[in-house]
């Protein structure tokens, strides 16, 4: 009981955590209020109403096809954040069990597996995502597939490393000699041990994935028009930035603030869980 109180206090005394939470609540508020009160469809084209400035009717103005920018931003937020979370959860679902098993059971399979991973990991996710998008064809779905295919490897490797450090410790050995099954030992003892690292990594990686999705959409290999993904919106509006700078400002700012949230929360959680400094997740 006492421990949880101390932990709670530490959570609120952590500046990045507090700032991250405030920013998260602020952004979530905009998304929910926007989702509830904006009467426009993000897809509805109205050529008589193009490139309007901000007004009480169109809060962020309209784009080159007369679509309401605020409605598109809010829709884009749900899409971008949703996809970021989805991709990371999928990657975790594949990577964590494989890392746990590979590290705990070990042996030749583990060695072979890790050699392969080292070969592929020398490759940055951006290049692999390009390769996969190139082979499957450019689309948002294929980009997500590519991200999951790349990210799970990172988790598998980190989790395996953590398990290797833990599995010789006494509590794991005790569990083993008391006839717990492999599954039970992993679930009851090893998984809780690696959980904090996974949470911190996932928080920071959601931000990274959002950056990756928007970059790919910007160069035309991700979300295709008219999907209002933030990066794709920046690509769409490119020709009009000089006339209406807000078309450039809002989506970019939205990406930056969202990723900043992820980084702040990740940093905050890192010191909350007391994960040692300098462990970098690449």
């Amino acid at each position: 009981m006492e421990v949880t109180v101390i932990k709670k206090a530490r959570l609120l005394h952590n500046p990045s955590m507090v700032f991250g939470m405030i920013l998260t609540i602020f952004l979530a508020g905009i998304i929910f209020v926007g989702g509830a009160f904006v009467p426009y469809s993000p897809f509805e084209i109205n050529m008589g109403n193009r490139l309007q400035g901000a007004s009480s009717v169109h809060w962020f103005g309209t784009d080159q096809l007369g679509r309401d920018v605020f409605a598109r931003m809010v829709y884009g937020a749900q899409l971008t954040i949703g996809l970021g979370v989805f991709a990371i959860v999928m990657a975790l679902c594949i990577g964590v069990p494989i890392g746990l098993l590979s590290g705990y059971i070990g042996g030749k399979i583990d060695a072979f597996f890790m050699r392969m991973i080292d070969g592929v990991l020398a490759f940055p996710d951006f290049i692999l995502a390009i390769a996969i998008a190139g082979m499957l064809g450019p689309s948002l779905t294929n980009l997500i597939i590519a991200i999951v295919l790349v990210r799970w490897i990172v988790y598998a490797r980190v989790v395996r490393g953590l398990v290797l450090a833990e599995k010789e410790k006494e509590y794991v050995l005790v569990s083993k000699v008391s006839y717990s099954s492999t599954f039970k030992t992993i679930r009851m003892h090893l998984l809780p041990q690696v959980m904090p690292d996974i949470i911190v990594m996932a928080a920071i990686d959601i931000g990274k994935v959002i950056l990756l999705i928007s970059a790919f959409s910007y160069i035309g290999l991700g979300a295709q028009p008219p999907i209002p993904e933030w990066g794709a919106m920046l690509n769409d509006g490119r020709a009009y930035f000089q006339v209406v700078p807000s078309l450039m400002i809002y989506p970019g700012l939205a990406i930056m603030l969202t990723v900043l949230c992820c980084n702040l929360l990740g940093d905050g959680l890192k010191s909350y869980f007391d994960i040692r400094k300098g462990r970098d997740y690449l």
Binding site: G207, L211, S214, A215, Y218, I219, G231, L234, F241, Q242, P245, M248, G252, I255, M256, L257, V259, L260, C262, N263, L264, D267
Partner: peptide, 22 residues
């Protein structure tokens, strides 16, 4: 470092073009 890690690089480039070139 924090903001630099959060800003999309293409957007940073767009902003630089906007201010310094345009």
């Amino acid at each position: 470092a924090l903001v630099g890690a959060s800003i999309p690089r293409f957007w940073l480039g767009l902003l630089l073009i906007y201010f310094f070139s345009l």
